[in-house]
Design a protein around this nucleic acid. Structure first.
Length: 456
RNA sequence: GUGGUUGUAGCUCAGCUGGUUAGAGCAUUGGUUUGUGGUACCAAGGGUCGCCGGUUCGAAUCCGGUCUUCCACCCCA
């Protein structure tokens, strides 16, 4: 064998069984999206670089896959830039396109570009791959699918309520019970930053706070000090570190901490609204939890922040996330369009379902029945029956070669085919079919009508 | 981007401190069995030991680089 071919780091091939399982997840998410009134759109896999660059922070820019310009791109680079040997500066001269990093920013671009054709509020869903030049690890790939649903053009908090229900509906249908939908509000985080005198360090502050359950209180305080947040400010956070209990009691504690911050109180009010509504509407299998440390990244969230974690017995990062972003289309020049949306991480959900054995058996079934090939006349006779079966939506096929019986039966086993039909001289003469159940081993002779109804 | 880890047959892995023709199980193919599979037995095929370079009389084994795997950090779905 020559050198083995390979695929790039962090990418995967999917075999038939994996594709079936992935489609199962897609189909459930799509179904729920549509019952909630979302409509599908698609956008190109690559965008103009300036659409993407600068939208995800410095770290994000690094993780965007850039596409080299076509042609002799180096010859048009200005000597002064070339001689600097500064990759960042050079990139913008040799790459004007980049692979999309998520679905939210391209969607914002879409809304701005098509604003005159869109009926607001606009509810869209989108299920497409995204790419990140990240180092792979568990549940982290360089090419993966996101399934997003967003609403733009409505500031109503009922949208947030609906998204919590949507998460609950999808995970309930997937039989993935016990997921936790964590919710927080950017206004609360800003409020806290304001109260401790660190408005200007909001991002550093939230990034540190986000690590609380991972690295512990002391390390979080260290990191905050490191980032230049004052000791007196950190002291004021003390009640926050010991914040425990249910939604309502956490809210009460927050009200005292944030009594001086108008913005913080607004955030609390929003959370209370959502929580009250969800309590009245009730969730099927998920639970809604307030988590003040939830600060997950994207710089553009302005209100609610949502994140879904897998049931506690599986080790997996978040399997979904989302939030409210009042200014998203602003960066593309369209003001005052509020949006809110959520995302499902298909690849991670797959890993969780696999680990918990939650894929239905039927997902991996290939065909309903295989006809054993005994020769040319028998094949023709079989294909007439197969035609009939297919018209009845029964998945049927003929083994293509008149190979040994053992080989054909083995093939049926490997492909997990539940039934096999044997048609030889005897059957042709009596115009019947021998139907064999591959699980029990039973077999009986039937006519065509019986065959159809038995397999249906 | 930082630190660590992994790489031997299609798959899962042995191979001691460098020393003959690199092994096993599973899978594949053929046979026992020319209309009856999953079990059993017999036999066969299949590897430039990730790649490049170095040390050595001699490298799967030691050293360097590179790619890949997995993990942690950063960040994130």
């Amino acid at each position: 064998m020559a050198q083995k071919p390979s695929i790039p780091k962090g990418t995967r091939d999917f075999n038939p069984e994996q594709v079936s399982k992935r489609n199962y997840i897609f189909q459930i998410i799509r179904g729920v999206f549509e019952t909630f009134g979302f409509q599908p759109i698609e956008t190109p896999s690559f965008e103009n670089s300036d659409t993407l660059m600068g939208k995800y922070g410095e770290e994000g820019d690094r993780l965007i896959f850039k596409i080299l310009d076509s042609g002799d791109f180096l010859s048009k680079v200005d000597d002064s830039i070339y001689n600097l040997k500064d990759s960042n500066k050079l990139t913008s001269s040799i790459s004007e396109k980049a692979l999309r990093y998520d679905l939210t920013v391209p969607f914002a671009r879409y809304v701005v570009q098509h604003q005159n054709e869109i009926e607001f509020p606009f509810k869209r869903y989108q299920m497409q791959p995204v790419w990140r030049a990240d180092r792979p690890q568990k549940g982290r790939f360089r090419e993966f699918y996101q399934c997003d649903a967003d609403v733009v053009g409505s500031q109503s908090l009922w949208q947030e309520v609906e998204f919590v229900q949507l998460y609950d509906a999808v995970f309930s249908k997937l039989k993935l019970n016990g997921v936790t939908i964590k919710i927080n509000n950017r206004k609360i985080l800003s409020g806290i930053a304001e109260v401790i005198g660190a408005q200007d360090k909001l991002i550093d502050f939230t990034v540190a706070l986000d690590k609380l359950d991972k690295i512990g209180e002391e390390k979080v305080k260290e990191e905050m000090l490191d980032k230049g947040i004052s000791q007196s400010g950190i002291d004021k956070l003390q009640p926050l570190f010991s914040l425990k209990g249910n939604f309502e009691s956490q809210i009460e504690t927050l009200k005292t901490i944030l009594s001086a911050s108008k913005e913080g109180l607004k955030g609390i009010e929003e959370l209370e609204f959502i929580n009250t509504a969800i309590n009245k509407l009730e969730l099927q299998t998920a639970s809604l939890e307030l988590d003040v440390t939830l600060a997950r990244g994207l710089n553009y969230y302005t209100g609610a922040i949502l994140e879904v974690s897998a049931p506690k017995n599986v080790q997996m990062g978040s399997i979904g996330g989302g939030g409210r972003y009042d200014d998203l289309t602003g960066i593309f020049g369209l003001k005052d369009v509020s949006g809110v949306g959520i995302s499902f991480g298909l690849d991670r959900i797959y890993l969780v379902l696999e680990e918990l054995g939650l894929f239905p058996e039927a997902v991996s079934k290939s065909i309903d029945v295989l006809f054993i090939n005994f020769g040319e006349d028998e094949s023709l006779f079989s294909l007439k029956a197969i035609k009939q079966l297919r018209e009845n939506n029964i998945h049927a096929e003929l083994y293509p070669d008149a190979a040994k019986m053992k080989k054909q039966m083995n093939y049926a086993n490997k492909r997990n085919v539940p039934f096999v039909v044997l048609v030889g001289e005897q059957e042709m003469n009596s115009n019947t079919y021998t139907l064999k159940n591959m699980v029990s081993g039973d077999q009986n002779q039937v006519n065509l009508n019986q065959l159809v109804s038995l397999l249906k």
